[in-house]
Amino acid sequence: MGNAMTGETRRNTFYGLLFISPWIVGFTVFMAIPLVLSFYFSFCDYSILNAPVFIGAQNYQDMVSDEVFWKTLRNTAYFAALSLPLGTVLALALALLLNTKLFARAFFRTVFFLPSLVPLVALAILWREVLHVEYGIVNSALRWVGIGTIDWLGDPRHAMHGLVFTSLWGIGNSVVLYLASLQDVPRGLYEAAEVDGANAWQRMVHVTLPMISPVIYFNLLMGCIGALQVFALPYVMTKGEPARSTMFYTMYLFDQAFSYLNMGYASALAWILFLLIALLSLCTHLLSRRYVHQGDLS
């Protein structure tokens, strides 16, 4: 084949491969080999202190009857089902508000955006105190309006809500994103709608939302994938307690791997996680083809 190549192609191939060589090495060592190993480990009894022992599909079989596995999946789904819609609506609302003629708009945008820059560990530490039973401001406010005290992180019925609350504070990223895409919606469309007599609400439903739907879709997809990887927030705030009500999938994976040294089982969990993410991406992709307006945003 080399002979058939022109000098140009050969040179291109040489430099191309040279330039991408870091990726080839990185992909092989930090991705491909780990993936193959992980697949193998998932069929093994492996504590990392001893050599892996092949045990067939035992780990996957165990998973089916492992209540904690299902519980963490349910918890993760519950968190996503609450935090994503709430986060999207709130972020959209903020973006819409910011998109009006607003006094000191840059200032408000900064206020909404800054919390999303707070490192997760700091966020978790701060909100543990903000949600504190006695002196936390959330409870101070609840008492002030007469609802009474809620043990946000200690009561299994509320602990997850406490985490959702916390995560909502960090939606500034989405606000900025939505704001940017709102500003990209062509003025002309609104004018046309107004001429047709559409009121503000109708303009939003029929013009704004369809136009920015690719961004919303993208954000939701990333949110779902993100939920499957939630770790630092509950790890610092609740350690998965009480009664495993805030135990997330990744925390369980981490515990199995690094607290109980069941690396084989953890690898099986990791592969299921991988499949779930692949599946989610695929589903949303197919759905988006049907429902999402493919605007000229990209």
Binding site: D155, P156, E241, P242, A243, R244, D255, S259
Partner: peptide
């Protein structure tokens, strides 16, 4: 950890 979670379940 399992008993601890059970204890929390009983308590809460």
């Amino acid at each position: 950890d399992e008993i601890a979670a059970a204890v929390q379940t009983i308590w809460t």
